[in-house]
Design a protein around this nucleic acid. Structure first.
Length: 128
RNA sequence: AGGGGUAGAUGGGUGGCCGCUUCGCACAGGCGGAGAGGAAAGUCCGGGCAUCAACGGGCAGGAUGAUCCCUAACGGGGACUGGGGGUAACCCUAAGGAAAGUGCAACAGAAAAUACACCGCCACCCGCCUCUGGCGGGAGUGAAGAGUUGGAAAUGAUCGGUUAGAAGGGAAAGCCCUUCGCACCAGACUUCAAACUGCCAACUCCCAACGCUGAAAUGUAUGUUUCGGUUGGUAAGGGUGAAAUGGUGAGGUAAGAGCUCACCAGUUCCGUGGUGACACGGAAGCUUGGCAAACCCCAUCUGAUGCAAGGCCAAAAAGGGGGCUGUUGGAAACAGCGGCGAGGAUUGCCCAUCCUUUAACCCGGGUAGGCCGCAAGAGGUUUAGAGUAAUCUAAACCCACAGAGAAAUGGCCACCAUCCCGCAAUAUUGGGAGACAGAACCCGGCUUACAGUCUGCCCCUCUCC
RNA sequence: UGGGGUGUCGUCAAGCGGUAAGACACAGGCCUUUGGAGCCUGCAUUCGGAGGUUCGAAUCCUCCCACCCCAG
């Protein structure tokens, strides 16, 4: 792999060029978190995806992480990795739902490849 | 060369693809600009700003504490002084007051703040003996009285009332009058201070008495009787302790003592130098223990709350106020009673009766939510000047706009630079590492964390020239 | 963001300037044929960490670390 070539990240830009964005409208707002009966969607040792149907006809996403899991730098890094995964794999998440991904514990190695692998495993439970 | 002290700097760079927040221009997708730190952290101080209170002073509470200076301000910084540590460079230091008062000091020690006492030492008195001398004793409690000091509560004193009673007088008697009066009154007055009186405590003087003790006599013995004594000076020494009433030496003395002298330590005063803290020199025997990061006293500073401050707009639901009129009370606000109107119930309608003054509408408060506050200055670098320095002044230049709100500043890849590992003379190549840590109104400090690399100055030791 | 509190043996904890109580647990011994119960003995070098005040610090002061709670 000596060739200085950009590595393909396998996302599909062919039919929907606006798919790999994550605007402010897609984020969960202040009132969307508390006082709602979330439904458990899938779970892995480090992540937990909760789901709640909304009537806006839109897919929304949010991340929560407890203060106990680490310092601000670690939590920021984890949240950014998860957001990047959502941006690149948006169609894996259920439509017309509020998606809340809860980070239970921070993995020991904060790398993109491991996070990507575990989140794929998290969502493939339901797609199969 | 090795070791150390101190002051800092940096905290990877370039490019590509895909994204995020915000601003500007176009406005249909688009284009361009900007986008985490030296500590953004801890929240330990100070200030700006905002609202409330006050606009003058004080108490309480809190903070600080050698001196001079810097700063918008500070508990920060600089210089300097004293103290402590280190061979040194250098480091640490909340560093006012212990003769204003209160309090504390385990164990050990005679004694822990009192020089009162104890053991000792010396003198004196008494007794005995082997007589220039030696041995033994010289414990205490102390009534009454006199005096001094202190303390407590309020007592005591005055008047009035009630009253056990006492004295006197009168009357034939029951009894009456006068005076005194233990005691009592949630009594009055006075005053809250002092004096006086009383009470309590401590100490001093004086001695009665009891006791202790020496010798002799007597008695089986506890005892009894007789004759005496029952005073002083010292703080040198007294194992301890963190700390013992200045230290060492000499003189001096009955024994001793700053009692006297020399040196040293401290204190006070004087002189010189310094803006000052202080330093140096001289004089005076002046010698007063520690702890105030124990209470406290003194000096200085300090209004409270914090951008979730505060200002504006403002939904739904609930809740608050609001119909007209008469009369009574009232200054009014308002309250009571009644009528009209409206609504509801009594079978559909009307009357009547009862209950309510609702709903709608309007008004203001105010929540969710939204907007503002919210981002260009006590800024940095260089040069010149002032100053030892912190810092200040002037000029030029550079940055100066990060501004979110469940919260952007990211993900992946390539190359270069740094360091490490293995082969190795080197190059090449392969693998690996890069810390502490994420703005939330903004600044100035402090403290704490920090991989690797680099730099200035200084000190000590060894070697060579 | 602002405010408050607690750290002492494995656990629960007392002590708050003068040798760090106690209970449970644990280890050893006695007793018993054995176990349990009972009895005896032991168990804190360093009181979350560092520095300071003091003759002396778990205690007082300063700065950190960890945990918990409250307001909104």
């Amino acid at each position: 792999m000596k060739a200085a070539k950009p590595v393909d990240i396998n996302y599909n830009t062919d039919f929907n060029p606006m798919a790999n964005t994550f605007f402010k409208d897609e984020r969960l707002a202040k009132g969307d978190f508390r006082g709602i009966k979330w439904k458990k969607f899938a779970e892995t040792p480090h992540f937990l995806l909760l789901v709640y149907g909304n009537d806006k006809g839109q897919k929304k996403f949010g991340v929560t992480i407890r203060k106990k899991t680490g310092g601000a730098v670690v939590r920021n890094r984890m949240r950014r990795l998860v957001k990047e995964f959502y941006r690149l794999n948006k169609d894996l998440f259920p439509d017309r739902h509020n998606n809340l991904l809860k980070i239970k514990r921070v993995p020991e190695r904060l790398t993109w490849t491991e996070t990507d692998k575990e989140l794929h495993a998290l969502l493939q439970v339901h797609t199969l």
